[in-house]
Amino acid sequence: MKDIVQKIEAEALAAITAATSLIDLQDIRVRVLGRKDSALGNLLKQLKDLSADVKREVGPLLNSTRDGIEAALQTKTTALEEATEAEGLDLTLPGITPSRGALHPMTQVMNEMVDIFREFGFMVHEGPELDSEYYNFETLNIPKTHPARDIQDTFFVNTPITRPEKHDLTDGKWVMRTHTSNMQVRILEEHEPPLRCIVPGRVFRNEATDATHDHTFYQLEGFVVDKNMNVGQLLWMLQEVLRAFYKKDVTVRLRPGYFPFVEPGYEADMSCVFCDQKGCRICKHTGWIEMVGSGMIHPEVFKAAGYKEGEYTGFAFGLGMSRIAMLKYGMNDIRLMHENSFEFLNQF
């Protein structure tokens, strides 16, 4: 009996040593230790039929043999697993990118700017892109005789427009909005001050296309109306927003500028964030970049919105978002914006 046990043990250990796969080991386990008809299993089953003396002698032997084989199987299993685990693994192969969508860079920059204003408590309205001369010009103190209303600058529409509007605008002409300021009076009519509003959106100018001009581009208009708004607050607002956008300290300089719907009107320059005012190509070595047209809302605009004279003051400003996006990404051709080539879009 003892011999048989030793033989089984020797054969089992030899087989374990020779095994090359986890499947081999599984086979050995079944053959030697398995419940049904295995070499050692059968002997264990016979044990109950033996005499107490023999049991006392063979029992521990069988148990120790089983434990020994079990341990050998375990050791070999671990060894085999370790040996095969890293097989076929090459961490240096390049990644497989999942199909991914992205927003147009113009949208990304626009969203970034809009979110800064939202944090300041500004509401966002886009408004119509095809608008009446009334809202695009007249309510903004831009009289019929103003050059901005020339056919050279503005796309006029031939087709009669029949939209439901607050005022009867059927007689006037309709235009592709030349600025997002078209929303100023619409908003003033619909909401009560205090008001903080931005208008991000698409605007149109009738001008020939080249690297720096497109007939379609993007602006962000903003205005704040309350009982006592002043130029110092306009300056603060612009400074804070630009600082948030460029994530560095920015100084804003106001210069006299002429826009019919503000008085006083200012061109706002930003200290050059690209060279920290040391002088570079972007700021044309002046240390300043022209960023914003701005000013205090003209009394005629309040009048057009039906406000009582002198009741409110407010400031307004317009950011050229196409230009801001171009500066941000170092784009030197505005036409890329609407060309929609994947070589361009996939970079964002």
């Binding site: 408590g121 509401m123 309205h125 886009e126 704040v224 309350d226 106001l254 006299p256």
Partner: peptide, 22 residues
Amino acid sequence: IQNIPVQPIIGEVTIPQSEAEY
């Protein structure tokens, strides 16, 4: 213009009513 004092805006705080479609 450079002598104008920069002033933070102080005013009523309200939840802005943005255009739903935006």
